[in-house]
């Protein structure tokens, strides 16, 4: 079965800890994600997500603390606004809604983390390999 490659931006205090907990509890989920740890979901510049798509990832998962749980008090609230706009914009230009997904996973939700990865993987599998926005780096002229 085709395994998509999904980049996952996880906030250090909740979702990354939730991912750890899934492992500690030996909850199995598809080996599709590549994790980038960030201090807070509020750290995530929407450009990181665009860059991920351009770099050839089949999907992007972004996960942070539940509203109210943010280690930095309000970071996820600002993140939520950014993500809402980015999501609307991507879908507007025709990127499949399942390509870029968002979740709140707490440090205690190992099970949920696994389910989220499961679901995102399933969605992206259904969509097939990414086609849009991928840059052909063979033809690269920058740098």
């Amino acid at each position: 079965m085709w395994q998509p490659k999904i980049i996952a931006f996880l906030c250090n205090w909740c979702s990354y800890a939730g991912a750890d907990l899934a492992g500690v509890s030996r909850i199995q989920y598809p080996p599709t994600i590549r994790v980038v740890r960030v201090p807070c979901s509020g750290r995530i510049n929407p450009i990181f997500i665009l860059k991920s798509l351009q770099s050839g990832y089949d999907g992007v998962l972004v996960s942070g603390c539940h509203p109210g749980d943010c280690h930095y008090l309000t970071g996820n609230y600002y993140a939520r606004r950014k993500f809402a706009l980015l999501k609307a914009l991507l879908e507007f230009i025709g990127i499949e809604p399942g390509r870029v997904q968002f979740s709140w996973v707490s440090a205690g939700e190992g099970e949920k983390f696994a389910q989220v990865v499961e679901r995102v993987t399933e969605d992206i599998r259904r969509l097939g390999p990414a086609r849009y926005l991928i840059k052909d780096h063979g033809a690269e002229v920058e740098d």
């Binding site: 750890d20 492992g23 500690v24 030996r26 199995q28 989920y29 080996p31 696994a114």
Partner: peptide, 17 residues
Amino acid sequence: NIRDQCSWAHMEKPDEA
């Protein structure tokens, strides 16, 4: 993180892990 987020989460899939 190749234990908590890899080997422990993909115990049945050594190649993919």
